[in-house]
């Protein structure tokens, strides 16, 4: 599977997961968006050495993965970019921060090691939270939540159009790349002499497509305004979910629950 196919497959998989009829999927999108942002903000607010406290935040993804019946393995693929980036930044911490933080036998755990692990944990948790949002909420519903937050219609409509046309243009770019690769075997990438014609051709076709799209929208009554149909109301269950999860996140942020539980046994 080449990267175009992989990207298209990833988008379609996300779509089908978000459209399932699970109770997590039925929660109001605004509530899920708020909880996700709140969780991410709480995770990144942990101090650099607060590794044990931060570990408590893993419960939210664990519980939601199970409740939404999502495969944890599939989400691991998404971690590749973030882990690479986070490691590139965090890997230097053990070299610059050599303060001894704890001693395990003869092995000294330095502050740099702890802060690197904290950074990696933050990276993993935040990516998983965003994954849980998109795997249980369609882009249309996220856009609906953005509209409820008074994000301008112009922007939200544009996001929806980008999303709808990504798969179309990815498929077109894939066809062009395959055609090129068949005529230039063994060549890595597009030769610099045809950069302009290759991408320019795709660009002009995309612009023509935009014109056709505009005309077809006009035929269907588009006059510069989009109207959204099915409105989902915030129910009591949504508010209960919001309060419960937010309280849980705050509890694990300010109370060392793990240490309290651990001290009962040690």
């Amino acid at each position: 599977m080449n990267k175009f196919d992989r990207a298209i497959h990833e988008i379609q998989t996300m779509d089908s997961m978000a459209e399932r009829d699970q109770w997590v999927n039925r929660i109001h999108p605004l509530v899920k968006l708020f909880i996700t942002v709140f969780y991410i903000a709480t995770v990144v607010s942990f101090p650099r050495y607060a590794l044990t406290g931060l570990l408590g935040m893993c419960l939210y993804p664990i519980l939601l993965f199970s409740a939404a019946e999502l495969s944890f393995g599939e989400s691991l693929y998404r971690l590749r970019i973030v882990l690479l980036l986070v490691c590139a930044v965090g890997v230097w911490n053990p070299f610059f921060d050599r303060t001894v933080y704890a001693q395990i036998g003869s092995f000294a755990v330095t502050g740099g090691m702890v802060s690197m692990l904290t950074l990696m944990a933050k990276g993993i948790f935040t990516v998983l939270a965003a994954y849980l949002l998109i795997a249980t909420t369609t882009i249309e519903k996220i856009c609906y939540a953005l509209r409820l937050l008074h994000i301008p219609k112009l922007f939200v409509t544009q996001v929806l159009l980008i999303y709808r046309y990504i798969t179309v243009l990815l498929a077109e770019a894939e066809r062009m790349s395959q055609a090129y690769a068949l005529r230039a075997p063994g060549q890595k990438g597009i030769h610099h002499k045809v950069w302009g014609t290759f991408l320019g051709g795709l660009l002009l076709r995309s612009m023509d497509r935009a014109q056709e799209l505009y005309e077809s929208m006009c035929v269907r009554g588009y006059r510069g305004e989009f109207y959204y149909g099915n409105r989902q109301r915030v129910k009591a269950a949504d508010i209960a979910y919001l309060l419960l999860v937010a309280a849980g996140i705050l509890l694990f942020r300010f109370v060392p629950v793990f240490e309290v539980v651990g001290s009962l046994f040690v």
Partner: peptide
Amino acid sequence: SFSGIVGA
């Protein structure tokens, strides 16, 4: 830390 890890 050990308590925290055990608790976790």
